[in-house]
Amino acid sequence: MAAMFSQNPVMNGPNYSFSDAPRTANGEFREHRFNPYSDNGGSTLAIAGADFTIVAGDTRSTSGYSINSRYTPKVFKIGGTTSSQDDATILLSVVGFAADGEALRDRLDAICKIYRYRHGKPMSVTACAKRLSTILYQKRFFPYYVHAILGGLDEEGKGAVFSYDPVGSYEREQCRAGGAAASLITPFLDNQVNFKNQYVPGSGTGHDLKEREVVPLVRRDAEILVKDAFDGAVERHIEVGDGLQMMTITKDGIEEVLLPLKRD
């Protein structure tokens, strides 16, 4: 106990001690009690077609068992020329911690806008997808606590959906569900979009079974699928409901519809 004896030659004997870090009564380091994250519930879903992409999300915002608001959009247009986003070509949905989601959306939007001003053309979805991954990974050690899904049309005009984990790992997919009811919607999508466990009738039994050929959905079918997926999720998950915001991007632009969901 060197600290017990003063550097001050005038003093000898017991001293005043000065410890370094705040500790609890048990002598353990006291940790920050503030939790910078919360979960605002909700669910999102995106499906890519041959020449369109649908990005959808419910509009409920929750804190615990409380509903904050019945209309809080989770799907955003990205990279339009102005704040009205009339000429945007990319969609982003974010679900998880809403404040992080909006911060992420604002950053990606600003970057896409600057790209547009500098290059005189909108950013491609594939470029935007990579950029979003970088933004997320930049906060690898204090992540944006969101499940992001990016949608648009690729350079060939085909529907494109990119899905991300909170730290930027990403993948292009045919469809993806995110958020609270992701685990409820995903198997439905596996079956209805990717035709998993669907076989050609009469093709035999066991290993002889022939899988049904996977073809992109037509737009109308995909839209019905989205509505059905959410109607199902609403029944089984308390954090999902109120409204369904569905944005469809085609070569003609972005269409947005708001459909009612159960508000219970």
Partner: peptide, 12 residues
């Protein structure tokens, strides 16, 4: 509209 200590916002 509301805003809380985490920066979460919503309007109703």
């Amino acid at each position: 509209a509301a805003a809380d200590l985490l920066g979460t916002t919503f309007s109703a």
